[in-house]
């Protein structure tokens, strides 16, 4: 019994001692003395550095965001301005329908009482008549003109092709309706002046009806716009 007791006391105290020793070593001796104060210090410094970096980056991000917003706004404004300009130019070129006060001139051949066919070439409305009419209207300040709904552009032609008159490569026949936007009184007086176009045409046995409108719409040019040979002159390039 005594021996047993001694043995178990020895074993138990040995184990206890080992545990104590490990614990001492674990809690005191393993930690290098100088590392303790240094590491938190370094980490604190690093943390402060990172925090300043973070602040700076956040400020940068805000700044860039602001710039991006401004750029976006600028782009939008620029786009609006360009769009506006484009609309204006399109309008000036006749690619948009125009509306406003103006007059409508209807030219028609009066059927000859006697001849059946004799009037067809001799006294029929020629392309010169239309040209003169358009010219007169332009002189009187018309800004948008269409012949039988063919809008006249800077490149539009008015020429005769047998029994037809060709405008914008479209063959037109009588009656010819010329719509012009402008001041109706001026346009009308320009045409009806004594010895003017209307009088002359009436002498040629052509029916001319001029009607003023408070508001009329001249359609847009619908054909293709192709410049095969003409090219814009580059800026600074003078030939």
């Amino acid at each position: 019994m005594g021996k047993n007791l001694a043995l178990s006391f020895l074993v138990v105290s040995l184990i206890l001692g080992i545990m104590l020793g490990l614990q001492f070593r674990g809690s005191y001796m393993e930690v290098p003395a100088e590392a303790v104060p240094e590491r938190p210090h370094a980490l604190t410094g690093e943390l402060a550095q990172l925090e300043t970096d973070y602040q700076n980056l956040q400020a940068d991000a805000a700044d860039l965001q602001h710039k991006l917003l401004q750029a976006e706004q600028g782009t939008r404004e620029l786009y609006a301005v360009l769009q506006d300009e484009l609309q204006k130019i399109k309008f000036a070129a006749g690619l948009l329908p125009a509306t406003g006060p103006g007059i409508v001139v209807v030219l028609d051949n009066i059927p000859d009482d006697e001849g059946f066919d004799s009037d067809s070439t001799m006294f029929a409305i020629g392309h010169e008549d239309i040209l003169k009419m358009v010219n007169e209207l332009r002189a009187a300040g018309a800004t948008a003109i269409a012949v039988n709904d063919q809008r006249l552009l800077a490149t539009s032609e008015i020429r005769s092709a047998g029994r037809f008159i060709v405008v914008n490569l479209h063959r037109l026949t009588a009656p010819y309706t010329i719509k012009a936007v402008g001041v109706p009184e001026r346009l009308e007086s320009g045409l009806k002046i004594k010895g003017g176009l209307v009088e002359t045409l009436k002498e040629w046995n052509i029916e001319v009806i001029v009607t003023s409108y408070e508001e009329l719409t001249v359609p847009a040019y619908t054909g293709p716009v192709n410049f095969h040979y003409a090219k814009p002159v580059e800026e600074g390039e003078d030939k």
């Binding site: 074993v11 105290s13 206890l16 080992i18 614990q23």
Partner: peptide, 20 residues
């Protein structure tokens, strides 16, 4: 014996190459 075992144990524990 208990005291002796305790001291031996502490000594061993300090010397054992085990990192807790």
């Amino acid at each position: 014996l208990a005291v002796v075992g305790l001291f031996m144990g502490v000594f061993l524990g300090l010397k054992i190459p085990i990192n807790l």
